[in-house]
Design a protein around this nucleic acid. Sequence first.
DNA 1: AAACTGACTAATA
DNA 2: CTATTAGCCAGTT
Length: 115
Amino acid sequence: MTRGRTVTRGDFFERVYAVVRRIPRGRVATYGQVAALLGHPRAARTVGWALRALSEGSDVPWHRVINGSGRISTNGRDHEASLQAQRLRRESVPVPAGGRIPIERFGWRPRVRGP
DNA sequence: AAACTGACTAATA
DNA sequence: CTATTAGCCAGTT
């Protein structure tokens, strides 16, 4: 098969998952950051959409993705939001109630290439 | 093919 | 600091 067209939902989602899977434990990345790594700095919303489409049993650490303000943006899904906060805290990432996660310290910094 | 949707962001007020 | 607005992108209908 010259191309795995088995993917009906578009390869973009899979690329998003591939990137998110690389976020190390104890670190967080923003939607915009993931989008930028995919080569589409403006597709942050699409990244969020891809994560929303994940199943519960997924091996994708979606909880390590937050918005650019350092806050959890499950946009209404309070249940998911608390789960995300819980998982992050378990990885030693501080999630202040009503506060923001210090991305300066816990943000993931993928190195483009080893120097 | 056109319109709509949304786990975003940056710019304004 | 919060609230509103407009722009963006891929998938869905």
